[in-house]
Design a protein around this nucleic acid. Sequence first.
DNA 1: CTGAAAGCGCTTACAG
DNA 2: CTGAAAGCGCTTACAG
Lengths: 358, 358
Amino acid sequence: MEDSGGRPVTMAQVAVAAGVSIPTVSRVINGSAPVADETRKAVLHSIELLGYHPNPMARGLSRGHSDTVLVILPHITEPSTTLRLSGLIGVLRNSPYELHVVDLERPVADRLRPIGEIVLQNRPAGVVIISLPPDDEDHRRFRDAGVPIVLVDSPSPEIPSDSVDDVAGGEMATRHLITLGHTRIGFIGDREETAIGVPASANRRRGYERAMSTARLSVRPEYVCTAPHGTKTAEELADQMLALEEPPSAIFAASDVQAFGVLAAARGVGVRVPNELSVIGFDDIDAASLMGLTTIRQPLEVSGCRAGMQLLELLGHPAEGELPEFPPLELVPRDTTAPAASTDAGSGTFEHEEITVR
Amino acid sequence: MEDSGGRPVTMAQVAVAAGVSIPTVSRVINGSAPVADETRKAVLHSIELLGYHPNPMARGLSRGHSDTVLVILPHITEPSTTLRLSGLIGVLRNSPYELHVVDLERPVADRLRPIGEIVLQNRPAGVVIISLPPDDEDHRRFRDAGVPIVLVDSPSPEIPSDSVDDVAGGEMATRHLITLGHTRIGFIGDREETAIGVPASANRRRGYERAMSTARLSVRPEYVCTAPHGTKTAEELADQMLALEEPPSAIFAASDVQAFGVLAAARGVGVRVPNELSVIGFDDIDAASLMGLTTIRQPLEVSGCRAGMQLLELLGHPAEGELPEFPPLELVPRDTTAPAASTDAGSGTFEHEEITVR
DNA sequence: CTGAAAGCGCTTACAG
DNA sequence: CTGAAAGCGCTTACAG
């Protein structure tokens, strides 16, 4: 219930209404010091009556920080990012913190503001950075700022972080294809930006290369293509690859979103999946199971959830419940991968491996 | 460059470094009053040198509001919501406002905090509410708070808002099926909550009913099912419906996400789409084209973009460029709808219509 | 258990 | 064009 002027009720008004001083009101609100039961009741009653809500800016100014958790992420519509964010939001909902989001829209404008600077500007209580590896400069600023930070999906020597072994994941995906008898295996991933970017795709490619070399399979340059992240761009890449004189019989896409592009390209040129082309993705976003896409599953929602809980811990407001475990990468075989046609099998020299799928 | 104590540089420090008073620093930062060119340069130099960033809370406390736009939404992982949010983020990026997100996670916990209260608590500069119709109480609070508000995806008599005619959309979808010769048409939508919720699904159902009655087709109760929003729940509903003695030959799902559930159910029981079952969704999210889903396209990203621009206008910081137009609903025919099998056609009495697809 | 006082870091009239 | 002063609404020692 604000006065008609539209200006919010202040703590001072509550104080006079309850017949106490301002600090007393502050104490009952924050439980920062004992208050007589009777006074507390009077204060609570006035708060209710006046519809008082503490001014977060005044509080923040006094305390030296806001009650805000800043989340910095590369692109909010990216399904894997959205899922991570969702996990984070879930745990923050039951905390005293509000959520500030800064979307760097990385695929479009590459890091306009350095992360460290964003943090400095916002004075949040804590920070979660999703899929964006801080550089040394950022680390320095974080240290100076003294703000608790948790990283999601990027490893760091000095900041708490969960991350998956993308190299191993890339290897796992590629090995699946090799095990199915494929030898002409393509890779489609993100174009590696000049600046430090999300290194997941590059690492998955490294895993691909490692699996290929382990199997003594050649990595043809024309089989490794990158472009800015996206379904459309991946489709174009796949189009080119499928138009090669000797096209690959299998493609590992560095993400599900890109795998969908490969699927679209195959459909476009009439290449049947999985009969003529096997496709495997990475992430296991919701749409992957809808599309029957074979993929490597990595923890997404859980990663955000864990980050939130770890941050709350650092902030001295531990969330209820156990920290959920961080599950390992897992091959999820579905309908887009199949054994290589016999013409393809045997054309390379590789050790045969058992399919270790469950 | 903070002092080693980790405490941020203040305006006062900049002032002494530049040999001017605090208000002068404030003036060059905000351009709120003329400053001699020489002094300005000195100030700017000190700011740069010290790595100064204004404290947003102090600023907000002084000004009476934060530099924050509060976005309230029902569920961030819902693709349509994410797309809307993305449009909003795009325009806010080039503004002086930060983005605060409150996810009500409506499907799970129905409106824990009234929207009006959230606004009151946060003291944002402006508010965008996505897919969540404020009630009278909320309206009253908004009026009192005097904060600029824009609604996305819900109509309002007193608040600027874009919204689509869901009834017409539901009618359009259903008419498409009728035109294809279907008479046994099912509807799958959201369970209508007790409290005011997102009315889109209910309105689309109304459109469905209207189209059916216009075509003199009966709406069988067992053909109209609702459940909490989601692919999984929709799949269960579709399972039941397909298990009916006389199952529908076509289903209109109130959203693409639910249509995917219908597709999954059909696949599960071996019903071929579109030969034995036509399916149409609503929204045209990215996954829809991937899945080849016939659907009704509504503006999603544009709706967020427009809301952002309208809000910036209200805030006195108009964004560059024209307000993009709000495109009308559009039928997007793809691979999941087809003419009814001849056994079905003619079993009902309906006027034949031309397919008016482009 | 409670209050008077100082201070958080800005902005905004008010003088000059 | 520039500075001294007051104030935004809280929190936090400091007394009592």
